[in-house]
Design a protein around this nucleic acid. Structure first.
Lengths: 244, 244
DNA sequence: AGGTTTTTAAATGTCTTACAATTAAAAAGG
DNA sequence: CCTTTTTAATTGTAAGACATTTAAAAACCT
């Protein structure tokens, strides 16, 4: 394996791409040990620091893991959902914070995904997820609950709803959207009135899933989406006013 | 800014995390130039290669870009949707290829997302996306079309359907699911019979969006999902038989 | 004075060499 | 045969040098 030393791209980027392609194509199976840094340097005809930069790029994407010591080295990493979560969350958070996406667009995407999950959840009707949802609703109704705790419980409720779909791909995609919205959600002060409203909608959603009526869940989630956007817009407006 | 030299984690990983956090929190705004590698090495009390490894980690996540020359350096990168696409695709492809996810699960997630988009598309009913869908349907019906071309047109059709939702977050999430499934889809040989079936479903979807009937689009997409899984399962079974 | 060319300096990209730290296997010793 | 010590392989880190690129500054020539 060699590398184009005259290309305008970094050698480390080229090497990273070459190895990444080998992993994606399956030439390098999971848990396979890569050649040592010194060997890679020989093969690609570059120095060890350059190889290391390439390996760090791959490590940043959780494509490899490294181990020190005699039997150490770089190994092809089996990508876990946890890894995928993490990357999805960083990416989504940045997309939102760098103003590439409006809060409303993110919210629309999130609730579109949630409605899709709710339909599947209703079809599967997992007892444990339903129990979690009920428990979180109960917690949300307790007086004296701080806004942070209410928010955390809200996340737990939605997480149970989504996980009830039993589709890890949907779960991990949603994780990004939910996490990215969290900073703004945490700024909301939930009045007694708005909590009531939210709890009522949560109850409707749980009921709909328990009685396996996806269209009712769909409708309740739509209302919740509108309500969330309204609350968030109020915070955004307030923040804008303060900055003036 | 300093770093814990006694931690069990790599210094480059710690530095990357520190800078990443600064970017995510907004301390380092978009297009802000980071200190030069030499300055960072001083600040973190490490060597320049270590700093460089950290920067390469960030570059791999499209968080920074680097430029050579007198006014060069590392700059905080504005994350584009294209960047996000790329990462989403790598992650999804690997999740699928490393058998963390079954084809059926990926397909379910994909079509759940597509149905969510179709509902939005029907509501917005963009003329240009509808025209693209019709054009692709027409192309798919042409005799003598190769399987690859049929497949490519299929992707274009779905892309138009999704983009019609006018929600870039949903578009980029779906990109991963669609791309990840592509290798397997490309192995399918589409018989005249199955093409007919698919084209009929595509037509129903386009009609449903044109007449703004989201439930009809939903139903057609469900059938398409089942049909896709059936076709893919046939390929998988065939492949398994050949390997025996 | 104004435009063109040359020089310069700053920055990243790469290489070389060296040493520290870690770890498992091999060797030594009881 | 078990325990301890040594050894070798490998990654992690450091320091210094040079190459390359780039834009700005300086010099130069109309």
């Amino acid at each position: 394996m060699k590398i184009d030393h005259t290309s305008d791209k970094d050698l480390s980027a080229q090497i990273a791409t070459a190895i990444r392609d080998a992993i994606i194509s399956g030439q390098l199976p999971v848990d396979k040990r890569l050649p040592s840094e010194a060997e890679l340097a020989d093969q690609f005809e570059v120095s060890r620091p350059t190889v290391r930069e390439a390996l760090k790029r791959l490590a940043a994407q959780s494509l490899i893991r490294t181990q020190r010591g005699a039997t150490g080295g770089a190994f092809v990493n089996r990508l876990t959902f946890e890894d995928a979560y993490g990357q999805q969350i960083t990416t989504s958070t940045l997309l939102l914070s760098m103003n590439a996406v409006s809060f409303e667009t993110a919210c629309e995407a999130r609730y579109a995904l949630e409605r899709a999950c709710a339909v599947l959840s209703a079809g599967r009707r997992e007892a444990d997820h339903l129990a979690t949802m009920r428990a979180e609703i109960h917690r949300q109704a307790q007086p004296g609950l701080s806004d942070e705790a209410f928010c955390a419980s809200d996340v737990a409720f939605h997480r149970a709803l989504v996980d009830g779909a039993r589709n890890p791909v949907l779960s991990y995609q949603l994780a990004g959207a939910v996490e990215a919205m969290q900073p703004l959600m945490n700024m909301i002060t939930f009045s007694a009135r708005s909590r009531e409203e939210i709890i009522a909608l949560h109850t409707r959603i749980a009921d709909a899933i328990e009685t396996q009526k996806p269209d009712l869940a769909d409708a309740a989630l739509r209302e919740l989406q509108d309500y969330t956007i309204a609350l968030a817009n109020a915070v955004i407006a307030e923040r804008a006013a303060q900055q003036t």
